[in-house]
């Protein structure tokens, strides 16, 4: 019953293996942005990350100098240089007068953090480790003692 299976490589196996390698190589080259190949200059950037609405206890965890990480992929995305805590505002329709009004929601806050990082300067991206930093980029963050969702709302090259 204990037959030892010896797999001999045939010409058909070799053809299949080479075709699979060719398909993989073609797919990788096709789906990689062409212009980014060979680029690896770094540049210091500062960006502003705005959290979604958070509680007051969240705001007490934020400290200048803390490192930030992408909380789903665990890679470093920069260091907090400064931050401000602002009231959380929502837009509500005024059904009597037909206008939108901004209203502050009690006990809810947003935090704007200015984050500094050394980024790979690619033709179409600034990447901090794997994170592409752009205005409008949404990614989850975490630091020591806090985690939140949010988005980048400003980006500037420092040097």
């Amino acid at each position: 019953m204990n037959k030892k299976i010896i797999w001999k490589l045939t010409i058909i196996d070799l053809v299949i293996i080479s075709m699979v390698i060719m398909i993989m190589a073609y797919a990788i080259s096709y789906f990689s942005p062409r212009a980014e190949l060979g680029s690896s200059r770094t540049k210091k950037i500062q960006y502003t990350y705005e959290t979604t609405n958070v509680s007051e206890s969240f705001t007490r965890q934020i400290k200048e100098g803390l490192n930030l990480y992408n909380s789903s992929r665990n890679h470093y995305v920069g260091t907090i240089v400064s931050y401000e805590v602002l009231p959380y505002e929502v837009r509500v329709p005024d059904l009597q007068n037909g206008v939108f009004r901004q209203q502050v929601l009690e006990d809810q806050w947003i935090v704007r953090m200015v984050v500094s990082a050394e980024a790979f300067d690619e033709p179409y991206h600034f990447r901090v480790t794997q994170e592409s930093i752009k205005v409008g980029a949404v990614f989850p963050i975490k630091g020591r003692g806090f985690a939140s969702y949010g988005a980048v709302i400003a980006l500037e090259e420092v040097e």
């Binding site: 837009r91 329709p93 005024d94 059904l95 009597q96 037909g98 206008v99 939108f100 009004r101 901004q102």
Partner: peptide, 19 residues
């Protein structure tokens, strides 16, 4: 600008602040 359905059922287009 976005639509608001008023209390009397009319639909109006209104400017959305800061958008």
């Amino acid at each position: 600008r976005d639509k608001i359905e008023m209390l009397d059922g009319r639909l109006v287009m209104a400017e959305v602040p800061e958008r």
